[in-house]
Amino acid sequence: MSDIITTPKISLLAPVPPPATVAAAAAAAPTEKPLIETEKLSLYYGQAKALKEISIKIQEKLVTAFIGPSGCGKSTLLRCFNRMNDLIDGVRIEGAIRIAGHDINSREVDVIELRKRVGMVFQRSNPFPKSIFENIAYALRLQGIKSRSEMEGTVESSLRGAALWDEVKDRLHASALGLSGGQQQRLCIARAIAIRPEIILMDEPASALDPIATAKVEELILDLKKDFSIVIVTHNMQQAARISDYTAFFYIGELIEYDRTARIFTNPAQKQTEDYVTGRFG
């Protein structure tokens, strides 16, 4: 495996949380030392309230899925975690978002630093119109890495980490836009993990891919879970059931239910959740 997977990762966020085994974390209730925590988070687009007092605690080194019908606010919430909503005019936030205990909307927080620690993969793969190598090298240069050998090593380990290395190792300097849709999305994942974020946000990463490419991306997500905490928005309920440890169901800006994935899909507490996961609406 790549060194992304084997090298112990030093957390940039203080205080350093003690390393929890996957099993222990999975067994823990979602209330114990959350990595991401929102408290009565509301978000407005102008006058419209897109998120309604959402309080959620997301655990480290797990895959957390956000599900819900279109317009329920799941992507909006995801984009709060790396403050991508800052780019949209007229967005206003109430309540708190804490990542590893730090309020990320406080004035002292450097949003650039935040985004280096909270990576993102988008719905539509968005490789830069540069070579495969340069796509990742761009991310590394932003980290201040200049040495060519270090850069080459990290490009390789990131591509291996994204299960793309074998497919592209002979054409690293060809255009990234010549890759297939699935390969492009895995390149975007490689780019995201190259700078070793602690959290990776994924906004419907497989929704534009065919079933085979989707399966590859899902496999990859399960693999990445060892090293990264992943929050994924998905429309595909089977996907949420397959890859996530926890699932949150949203409906028109509200968090309806949040629990272990197995429970959400087999024995949800809320009628609305049951109706949605069984396909009765949405």
């Binding site: 985004r115 968005n126 830069f128 991310a139 932003l142």
Partner: peptide
């Protein structure tokens, strides 16, 4: 120029 390219860059921590 697609907005996605700007977002990709900003999400990597580019100014």
């Amino acid at each position: 120029i697609p907005q996605g390219l700007r977002e990709a860059s900003l999400a990597l921590g580019a100014t």
